[in-house]
Amino acid sequence: MKALFIGGTGTISAAITRQLAAQGCELYVLNRGTRNEGLPSSVKTLEADINDESCVADLIRDMSFDVVADFIAFVPAQLERDYRLFAGKTKQFIFISSASAYQKPLSDYRVTESTPLANPYWEYSRNKIACEEYLMKQYREQRFPITIVRPSHTYDERSIPLGVHGSKGSWQVAKRMLEGKPVLIHGDGTSLWTMTHNEDFAKGFIGLMGNLHAIGESVQITSDESLTWNQIYTAIADALDVPLSAVHAPSEFLAACSREDFTGGLIGDKANSVVFDNAKLKRLVPGFTADIRFDQGIKRTVAHILAHPELQREDPEFDAWCDSVIAALDEAASAVRRSLAD
Rank of each mutant, 00 (worst) to 15 (best):
K2Y: 09
I6Q: 01
T9P: 02
A15S: 14
I16G: 07
Q19H: 10
Q19L: 08
A21M: 05
A21P: 08
Q23N: 15
L27W: 14
V29C: 11
V29D: 09
T34C: 04
R35I: 04
N36I: 14
E37I: 12
S41Y: 00
S41L: 05
S42H: 05
E47H: 04
N51T: 11
E53K: 15
I60N: 02
D62W: 03
F65N: 11
V67H: 02
V67K: 04
D70L: 00
D70Y: 00
I72G: 03
F74Q: 03
A77K: 09
Y83F: 13
Y83W: 15
F86Y: 15
F86N: 07
A87Q: 14
Q92F: 14
S98Q: 13
A99D: 02
Q103M: 09
P105K: 10
L106D: 08
Y109V: 15
T112L: 01
E113V: 01
T115N: 10
L117D: 07
Y121W: 11
Y124E: 08
Y124M: 07
R126M: 11
K128W: 09
A130Y: 14
E132T: 15
Y139H: 11
R140K: 13
R143C: 04
P145C: 06
I146G: 02
T147N: 07
T147Y: 11
T154M: 02
Y155K: 13
I160D: 02
G163N: 04
V164W: 06
H165M: 07
G166Q: 01
K168I: 04
W171M: 09
W171Y: 10
V173E: 05
R176K: 10
L178W: 15
G180V: 03
K181D: 09
L184K: 12
I185M: 08
H186W: 09
W193P: 04
M195Y: 03
K203Y: 06
F205Q: 09
I206F: 07
G207E: 12
L208D: 05
M209Y: 05
M209E: 05
H213Q: 14
A214Q: 12
E217N: 01
S223N: 01
E225G: 08
I232M: 09
D238L: 06
A239N: 14
S245K: 14
A246R: 11
A246F: 12
L254I: 15
E260D: 13
E260G: 00
I267N: 10
I267Q: 10
G268F: 14
G268M: 08
A279N: 07
K280W: 03
L281W: 00
F288L: 03
F288Q: 08
I292G: 07
D295H: 10
G297H: 04
T301D: 07
E310L: 00
L311Y: 12
R313M: 05
D315E: 10
P316L: 11
V325Y: 11
I326K: 10
A327F: 11
L329M: 10
L329E: 13
E331P: 02
A333F: 11
L340A: 12
